[in-house]
Amino acid sequence: MIDLINLTKLYKGLRAVDGLNLRVDKGTVFGFLGPNGAGKTTTIKMMAGILRPTEGRIIINGIDVRKEPFKAKRCIGFIPDQPFLYEKLTAMEFLRFIAGIYNLNHSQSLNSHVTELLNLFELSHWSGELIESFSHGMKQRLIMCAALLHDPDVLIVDEPMVGLDPKAAKLVKTIFREQAAKGRTIFMSTHSLEVAQEVCGEIAIIQAGKIVARGTAEDLERQAGMKGSLENVFLKLTEDGKVAHEQSLSSS
């Protein structure tokens, strides 16, 4: 479903993403973890077609994002970490705008689908309000509505829980699990180890642009050679990754 092949991104000589190879199967919630500046958002932006990779390929649903970006984008729902939206539109107008961009306006079921999503994300009472009056969490939920509007096969999510209250966070976790059960693939970067442990079927840890560990939470414990909370495992693996990265830098 998602294939990242030798994915590399250079920023003025810095290897933000360094030859990443990943395969994520259909119906998986995949957690993408890493410390700040590890390359998570860069990877995600490349997958969403916002950044151009320096090298490598991204295959979504069998479509090469670089070769057929628009076909690939039709299969993707993207949820960024910062909810920048058109503040002067109402929530309903914004969703209709998104529907138009994806050529869904003539769909018979659009109205019922929009209503269903607004209800799902508890925004139906706010559908006629201008987005500028929304809180951060409400904007984040509206973006999630918009990302699901065209029924994408793959959801790419950058830090989904930022700005959400516990109730909304629980709602989002439930929705992600349900979407995966329906066969959607969810690729999610997060800082929250609790979220990763709770929702993700598989986890990869990225450090200095490279995958340092991947597998289920139990697999990661094994790789770290320690039992305990995922937090300790994460700290151990990223510390090991950091040391290895510094050694490779000094030897080169």
């Binding site: 628009f70 984008k73 039709r74 993207f78």
Partner: peptide
């Protein structure tokens, strides 16, 4: 388009 430009960049609109 402002900071919401990401919406169009990640959409299938060329």
């Amino acid at each position: 388009e402002g900071r919401a430009f990401w919406i169009l960049r990640s959409s299938p609109l060329s």
